[in-house]
C-alpha cells in the first residue's frame, strides 16, 4: 500500500518543480495522441500539460483539443503534428507572442487574448507558407506532397 503513496508524492513534486510553467492543457482526446516536451513523449489525455517547445501529435483516426493560457484554442484532426515554437503571455508587460509550426495534418484555430491584444503576434508556419492571424477562427489542411 506504500507504493501508490510514493507514486503520488513523486507526481506532485514533479509538477511543482517543473522548470517551465504549462502554457496550455489538453482538454480532449479521441484515439491516440501524444505530447513531446524536451525529448520526453507522453500519451495525451485530458489534463496533460503543454509547454513551450512541445510537439503535439495525433495518430490516424484520432483527434485532440488543447486550450492555451490566453484562451487560444487549437484542435487537431488525424495524422497531425504541431510544434509550439514561441509563447509569451504577459499582457500587463505587453509581452505577447504565439508562434507555431504545423508540419502535417489539419488544425482548427480560435484566437485568444494574444491575437486580440496584438494581432501581428500570432503566426503559424506550414511547409507551404505562413499564416498570419488577425483575431478570428480558421481551419488549415496540409497535403502530403509539399
Amino acid at each position: 500500500m506504500r507504493i501508490p503513496a510514493i507514486a503520488i508524492s513523486l507526481a506532485v513534486s514533479a509538477s511543482v518543480w517543473a522548470e517551465e510553467p504549462a502554457i496550455g492543457y489538453v482538454k480532449n482526446v479521441m484515439g491516440v495522441a501524444t505530447i513531446s516536451t524536451g525529448g520526453q513523449t507522453a500519451a495525451a489525455e485530458p489534463g496533460t500539460a503543454v509547454h513551450l517547445g512541445s510537439v503535439l501529435r495525433t495518430g490516424s483516426k484520432s483527434s485532440m483539443g488543447v486550450t492555451f493560457r490566453d484562451e487560444t484554442i487549437m484542435s487537431f484532426g488525424p495524422d497531425t503534428e504541431l510544434t509550439v515554437d514561441e509563447y509569451l503571455y504577459a499582457p500587463a508587460q505587453g509581452k505577447l507572442k504565439l508562434g507555431s509550426k504545423l508540419a502535417k495534418g489539419s488544425l482548427n484555430y480560435v484566437s485568444g487574448v494574444i491575437a486580440k491584444l496584438q494581432p501581428d503576434a500570432v503566426s503559424i508556419k506550414t511547409p507551404g507558407g505562413t499564416i498570419g492571424i488577425r483575431g478570428t477562427q480558421f481551419v488549415v489542411k496540409i497535403e502530403d506532397e509539399e
Binding site: 507551404g128 507558407g129 505562413t130 498570419g132 488577425r134 478570428t136 477562427q137 480558421f138 506532397e145
Partner: peptide
C-alpha cells in the same frame, strides 16, 4: 494533387477577422 489550404471561419463570438497567407507564389488576405 490537392493543395494545402486554409479557410477562414466566423469566430465563436459571431465576428469575422482576417488571415494573411504568405507563400512562395504570393500573398493573400482572406
Amino acid at each position: 494533387k490537392p493543395k494545402s489550404y486554409a479557410v477562414l471561419l466566423e469566430s465563436p463570438d459571431g465576428s469575422t477577422g482576417r488571415i494573411v497567407v504568405k507563400g512562395s507564389r504570393g500573398e493573400q488576405v482572406v
